[in-house]
């Protein structure tokens, strides 16, 4: 059984989609030919939207024949990966992977929403994605409210089961050896896995020669990024920065996303050290899933300027440990809250 062409255009990372370009003997070197310029330009614009604007504005152009739509989408996807590989900055890679996985997540949600119970194509896409890419067998339980089920052991192969509390096995519906997920949860699982897969594909890309066009665009994107986000220096108290906060800075520097408790720790710490809203926003801006409105709201909430006007204090070392955010060193001896390090230093 095969997908329709249109479906493959929305999922260009599938092996079956890739075959649409390989059968036409497409080579990376061809990208220097003018006939591909519009595709390179589209990939560049997509990356700019993702990494500089934090926008998901990409649209598939459906005004062509099905065959061409798929070919173009696969090539644009490949060009994007090449550009990101060539830029070779962890934060850029992660931000790109996050947005790209969110884009595919949107397609999947809309496909699932538009499908009825008997829509075999959509189910097939889901099964195919999970089996081909994530080596996970997913079953649909038509008799149980269309829940998807995954064997416990297979479910635990997915890193998300250990990363986020609501995804821990104890917080899942488990029955007769299976973990049950509803439509939106299976899509969330899909996005998380796809994010990791895209990063993995970029890492594994090793083209012998990169077309000049790709090098020149990636160079310009790289210098724009470096100008926008110079290497991160911990503000102010470098010599007394608590190791837990330093670790968060390192994570941000590597382009990693932060867990909710890590964001609260960083936010309360920055507020405690009298950072201005703009200084704090500048830091949070580097997170792959940055959203200015939400960040501003949450920081104001922590500072007690919103909601119940209660200012949140920096969490205790005990709480930090509970959230696996403690990276204790000798400097931490005898403290019960990271702020004590600042107090200790400034009182000397």
């Amino acid at each position: 059984m095969r997908f329709g062409n249109k479906d493959l255009a929305r999922y260009p990372f599938l092996r079956e989609a890739l075959s649409y370009v390989t059968k036409n003997e497409f080579k990376i070197e061809d990208l220097d030919n003018s006939e591909f310029y519009h595709l390179v330009e589209k990939a560049k614009r997509k990356i700019e939207d993702y990494v500089f604007e934090g926008k998901l504005a990409y649209q598939i152009d459906y005004n062509k024949t099905h065959e061409i739509i798929v070919q173009e989408e696969v090539i644009i996807f490949l060009i994007s990966l090449l550009l990101i590989k060539s830029i070779s900055i962890d934060s850029v890679t992660k931000k790109f992977a996050l947005f790209e996985s969110m884009r595919f997540e949107r397609y999947l949600i809309s496909d699932l929403d538009n499908s009825n119970q008997d829509d075999k194509t959509v189910k097939l896409i889901l099964y195919k994605i999970f089996e081909d890419l994530f080596q996970t067998k997913v079953d649909l339980e038509v008799d149980i409210f269309n829940f998807y089920k995954i064997k416990i052991s297979d479910y635990l192969d997915h890193p998300i089961a250990f990363q986020e509390r609501e995804w821990n096995l104890v917080n899942r519906t488990v029955d007769k050896g299976y973990v049950y997920l509803d439509g939106s949860e299976i899509v969330r699982l899909f996005r998380n896995e796809l994010y990791l897969l895209i990063i993995d594909r970029i890492k594994k890309m090793n083209p012998e020669v990169l077309p000049d066009m790709i090098i020149s665009i990636s160079d310009s994107l790289k210098s724009r990024w470096e100008k926008m986000y110079p290497p991160l220096r911990a503000p102010g108290h470098q010599d007394i920065l608590p190791p837990c906060i330093q670790h968060i800075y390192n994570q941000i520097d590597k382009g990693e996303n932060l867990s909710h408790p890590a964001r609260v720790l960083l936010g309360t710490f920055l507020i405690y050290t009298n950072k201005s809203m703009e200084e704090m926003i500048d830091l949070f801006k580097r997170l792959p899933d940055y959203n200015e409105q939400i960040t501003r709201y949450q920081l104001e909430h922590l500072a007690g300027k919103r909601g119940n006007t209660k200012q949140y204090f920096v969490p205790s070392c005990e709480k930090i440990k509970l959230n696996n955010l403690c990276f204790e060193t000798v400097v931490c001896k005898g403290i019960s809250n990271p702020t004590q390090l600042i107090y200790r230093k400034s009182s000397k």
């Binding site: 052991s153 635990l156 821990n168 050896g177």
Partner: peptide
């Protein structure tokens, strides 16, 4: 057989489940 090959980390998940550790009332 389904549990024979489970890693230590996966077994840890099973123990958390049995102990109810980290259970969210939101469920």
């Amino acid at each position: 057989e389904s549990f024979f090959n489970l890693s230590s980390m996966k077994r840890s998940s099973l123990t958390q489940y049995l102990l109810g550790r980290g259970y969210l009332v939101d469920n």
